[in-house]
Amino acid sequence: MKFDWPYFWESLLSPSPQFLNGLALTVIISVVAMALALLLGLVIALMGRSRFLPFQLFASLYIWVIRGTPLLVQLVIIYTGFAAAGIFRFEDTDVLGSLIKGAVQAAIIGLMLNESAYISEIVRSGLESVDRGQNEAALSLGMTPMHSMRRIIVPQAIRIMVPPLGNSFNGLMKSTSILSIIGVSEMFQVGSTMSAATFKVFEIYIVVALYYLLLTTVWTFIQTAIENTLNVRAGLPRAEPVFKRLFGIRSRKQTTPAPALALQPADAA
């Protein structure tokens, strides 16, 4: 096997400015797309729970279409397809003094749309995991449904939602690698260019893989910290330490009890 160790170590430990730009773009696109997807996902989830039928229909149609088609195809339709059909063309625009490329805008929109469909399902199941009696108790104390949602339901649901949302974000960061297809010079795209110029294909993609691993590992630490904070605030034991989580040495004993007063059958009579 031919493996250029010096080249590998150099690429890993002192990456080129282009590579670091790619890394930065990967992080920025992930974070912005996730933030927007959280908002849109919440809106879609609330539409799905609405009593207004058109909202419900829209939400289920949206989730059905977005989850039923590949992200790659969605991206190409949004960026290339729309432009070709003369529907909409993403132009480079100046935002707060920096030039945002059309492809980057399309990437953020595409990832946001794709992710929001999954997030809305996470939000929906999180809200549903809170026992109906909690809402009834809040209403019986004279709270409006909105007040109850904000003070009673959401604070309890959020603890349930954070682990799957964290997984979503982890997946989203890795999905950015397919943005190369619409010409976004994120980390994977920069790696491809470098490998085409140097023919050090194996070395470069190992470096790329290690940097993705670094991103998701850092995120695992952040996610664990968020979960711990929420658990402590809810008076529950902390989640498992990060190293256990990373290397899969999870204990079987349940450290976090099921959500507040597990679902009880409503007594109808």
């Binding site: 009696g133 309890q156 809810a234 008076g235 507040a260 007063l261």
Partner: peptide, 10 residues
């Protein structure tokens, strides 16, 4: 007052 109390656990 509910059969299952429904106190707010948080």
């Amino acid at each position: 007052v509910f059969q299952h109390f429904n106190l707010f656990p948080h």
